[in-house]
Design a protein around this nucleic acid. Structure first.
Lengths: 222, 222
DNA sequence: ACCACCATGCGCATCCTGATCGTCGAGGAC
DNA sequence: GTCCTCGACGATCAGGATGCGCATGGTGGT
């Protein structure tokens, strides 16, 4: 689960990175508004941990900007311990949650998990491709009248592919999606899951690009 | 939509005001029973968010008074995290809904919206699925002529599932609903409650999705 | 008495693992 | 250019470990 951390204090930032990675997230650390804007533009993050005091501007500005662009990405604000005003303005600006410093890592990760869970509920949950509708809330797909069930790993792989239809995802990328931070598992699990998916979706649905990875077949193909 | 907030904690009250305004309400904040009485007399509010502990009396008193005067204004109670008795007495006294602290703003506004909708359309607080009608005010269900009673925890789990019929809710999500995310309680309470629910509703009513969570069985199934 | 929580053992779906087989494509010989 | 060979990569399959979810009973609190 990719998390963007926007924090200019190097020590705290590193601590957060390490801690969250240990808790099963895949954090990315930036230390300025500019970098944050850039990173958010790249997409792929499921939540943002946002410090208010940044060298090149206030985190609040960034937040407002984000919301004005219509993003509903979950944002957790880090505020000074007694910055009550900050909290109110933060919520006002569209933060989903806040945490006063100093804080405990377990609490942060718990809240992050809660945030991402909640975000899932409100997001539009349907991905479409080539006649298949994938419902991420139900972890199942539908093609015509036929309902197709997936196991968790199968679903994870398929969802990753359908989020970027047509683009090639390397096996390493898919592995990271399956296992997150952890070391690369030495085996061919991805291939096996793709195999199972093809059994359910038809052998043409997922194409393999030799030496590069997998992608969804162009629409119109079987 | 004008909402009256009765809350004596300044920080929480402010947060509520801001948050609800964000969500499109027009909240008014008072911090005592006396002010609340006065404000309600002015009419014009569509719902009340009522804290139980107030400096000049219990919110329960206020609630009872209100109902005795024949008002059917929607009231959402805020209760302490483990104030289970409070909830029961609160519902008895005529509250339409309750929310344990700490709570999430999005949930509060969602519930408020539901409350006002309900009051408007006189729609009942009933959730339907597969022949079961769940009355969220009475904490009980009905299937055909048979009335089914649930314990609080059972009800909470069931209501969560029925609010998103067909969606998969992870155990973590259900735990959050039960305990309001603090520490993840290391135990299998959710499983046990599901077990009890299945005993009352039939083993097919709630499906388990291995590695993911639980969901209601598709309609038409047992 | 009821309800909620915790602990334990078991059964089984799921996923991993590793071996084997199939396939693709580059390069060389003719 | 055509064919062949070979190496690398991917597909497939089956056995087996893992860990999840279920059932059940016990304990404590209300």
């Amino acid at each position: 689960m990719r998390i963007l951390i926007v924090e200019d204090d190097a020590v705290l930032g590193d601590g957060l990175s390490v801690g969250l990675r240990l808790s099963g997230f895949s954090p990315e650390l930036v230390d300025s508004c500019a970098d944050a804007r850039h990173a958010i533009g790249m997409e792929g993050f499921e939540a943002v941990v946002l410090d208010l005091m940044l060298p090149d501007g206030s985190g609040l500005e960034l937040l407002r900007e984000l919301r004005q662009r219509g993003s509903d990405m979950p944002v957790l604000m880090l505020t000074a311990r007694d910055g009550l005003d900050d909290r109110v303005t933060g919520l006002d600006a569209g933060a989903d949650d806040y945490l006063g410093k100093p804080f405990e890592l377990p609490e942060l990760s718990a809240r992050l998990r809660a945030l991402t869970r909640r975000a899932q509920g409100r997001a539009e949950n349907l991905l479409h491709w080539n006649g298949l509708a994938l419902d991420t809330a139900k972890m199942s797909g539908q093609r015509g009248a036929e309902e197709i069930a997936f196991s968790r790993r199968e679903f994870t792989v398929l969802a990753a592919l359908m989020e970027r239809p047509g683009s090639i995802l390397s096996k390493a990328a898919l592995e990271e999606r399956l296992y997150g931070w952890q070391e690369d598992v030495e085996s061919n699990t991805v291939e096996v899951h793709v195999h199972h998916l093809r059994a359910k979706l038809g052998s043409g649905f997922i194409q393999t690009v030799r030496g590069a990875g997998y992608r969804l077949a162009p629409e119109g193909a079987a």
